[in-house]
C-alpha cells in the first residue's frame, strides 16, 4: 500500500503543493526536449530524403561545434568562424556523398546504417587529432547569445528561466518553420519529397539524386551546427555530447522517423517526461532513471502506435 501511495498519490500531492517547482521542472523538460528535438531533426532530414538512418548525426554536432570553437581559438573572428564552419559542413556533405553514399546506392538499409557508423569513427578520430580531446568553452558571448536568467514570480514562488534556453527554443522553432517552408514551397523541397517517396521515380523525372543528397546532408550539417552551439553554450563542447545524441533516438521513433513536427513533439514529450519522472518518481527507484526512462516512454508509445506518433502508416504487402 505504501509503495502504491508513493507511486500514484505522493508525486501528485507534491505537484499540487509546490506548483512553482512543477512549472520549473516542466520548463526544464521543455528546454531539454527542444534540444533533443534539434538533434532528432537532423536525423529526420536525412532519413526522409535518403532513407539512411544516420548514426553520425551526434558526432556531426560535436564536429561542427569543435570546428567553430577551434577556428575561433586560432584567431578567426566569431562570425567569420561561423561562416567557415558552414563551409566545412558543406565540404563534409560533398565528401560523404562522393565517397560513401554514391558507391553504396541501392544497398539495404542496414548496410547504409553501418556505413554511418564508419563515418562516426572517422569523425571521432579526425576531431580528436585536429582539436584534441579537451572540453572547450562555446563562444556564446561572441555570437551574441544571451546569458543569465529571468526570474518570474508566479504561483507563490519564482521560476527561473535561462535566457540561453529561451534563445534555443526560439532558434529551434525558427528552424523547424524554415524547414517546413522549404519542404512544402520550394522547388528543391519538392524534389526532396520526391526522392523520399521513391528514388527510382525521382530519377526518372530528372531529379539528380547526388545533388539532393548533398543538399540534405548539408542541411543536416547546419542543424548539427545550431544544435552544437546550443548544447555547447549550456555545458561544454566535448565528445561527451555524442552520447546525448543517443537520446535523440527515442525522440525520433516516438515522433515517427519521417515527420519533422513529430521530432519536435516527440522531443518535448521525452524531455518533459524524463524530467518529471526523474524529479517526482526518481527518488523512489534510486536516482539516474533519466538514463533509460526516455527509451521506456518511447517503447510504451510504440506498442500502441508502431509507426510513431506522426510517422507514415506502415503498409505491408506480399
Amino acid at each position: 500500500m505504501d509503495l502504491l501511495y508513493q507511486i500514484f498519490v505522493d508525486p501528485f500531492v507534491q505537484m499540487g503543493t509546490a506548483p512553482d517547482l512543477l512549472v520549473q521542472t516542466l520548463w526544464e523538460g521543455l528546454v531539454s526536449g527542444v534540444l533533443y528535438a534539434l538533434i532528432a531533426l537532423g536525423f529526420v532530414l536525412i532519413f526522409k530524403a535518403s532513407g539512411v538512418f544516420n548514426f553520425a548525426q551526434g558526432i556531426m554536432v560535436v564536429f561542427a561545434a569543435l570546428t567553430l570553437v577551434g577556428l575561433y581559438e586560432k584567431g578567426v573572428p566569431a562570425f567569420l568562424a561561423l561562416a567557415l564552419t558552414i563551409v566545412v559542413m558543406l565540404g563534409l556533405a560533398v565528401l560523404v556523398e562522393r565517397l560513401m553514399l554514391r558507391p553504396l546506392v541501392n544497398q539495404p538499409d542496414i548496410v547504409l546504417f553501418m556505413a554511418t557508423f564508419g563515418l562516426t569513427y572517422v569523425l571521432i578520430g579526425l576531431g580528436e587529432i585536429i582539436f584534441g580531446g579537451d572540453p572547450k568553452v562555446m563562444i556564446a558571448d561572441q555570437l551574441y547569445l544571451p546569458r543569465g536568467a529571468i526570474d518570474v514570480n508566479m504561483l507563490g514562488g519564482f521560476v527561473s528561466l535561462q535566457k540561453i534556453d529561451i534563445a534555443a527554443a526560439i532558434i529551434a522553432s525558427l528552424m523547424v518553420a524554415g524547414l517546413a517552408v522549404v519542404f512544402q514551397k520550394t522547388r528543391i523541397g519538392r524534389a526532396l519529397r520526391a526522392v523520399a517517396d521513391s528514388h527510382k521515380a525521382a530519377l526518372s523525372v530528372g531529379i539528380s539524386l547526388e545533388q539532393i543528397w548533398v543538399v540534405v546532408w548539408f542541411a543536416a550539417g547546419i542543424v548539427a551546427l545550431a544544435t552544437g552551439i546550443m548544447w555547447g553554450a549550456r555545458s561544454n563542447v566535448s565528445f561527451a555530447l555524442e552520447i546525448v545524441s543517443l537520446k535523440a533516438l527515442p525522440v525520433l521513433i516516438l515522433g515517427g522517423l519521417t515527420s519533422i513536427p513529430g521530432a519536435i513533439v516527440g522531443g518535448i514529450i521525452i524531455g518533459v517526461g524524463e524530467k518529471l519522472g526523474e524529479f517526482y518518481w526518481g527518488p523512489l527507484l534510486g536516482s539516474g532513471i533519466e538514463s533509460w526512462l526516455a527509451y521506456v516512454i518511447a517503447l510504451i508509445f510504440l506498442l500502441f502506435r508502431p509507426q510513431g506518433l506522426f510517422g507514415e502508416r506502415i503498409i505491408e504487402r506480399i
Binding site: 553501418m114 556505413a115 564508419g118 563515418l119 572517422v122 578520430g125 579526425l126
Partner: peptide, 8 residues
C-alpha cells in the same frame, strides 16, 4: 579513423 574508413 582507419577502422571507420575500413568499415566503409
Amino acid at each position: 579513423m582507419v577502422v571507420g574508413a575500413l568499415i566503409v
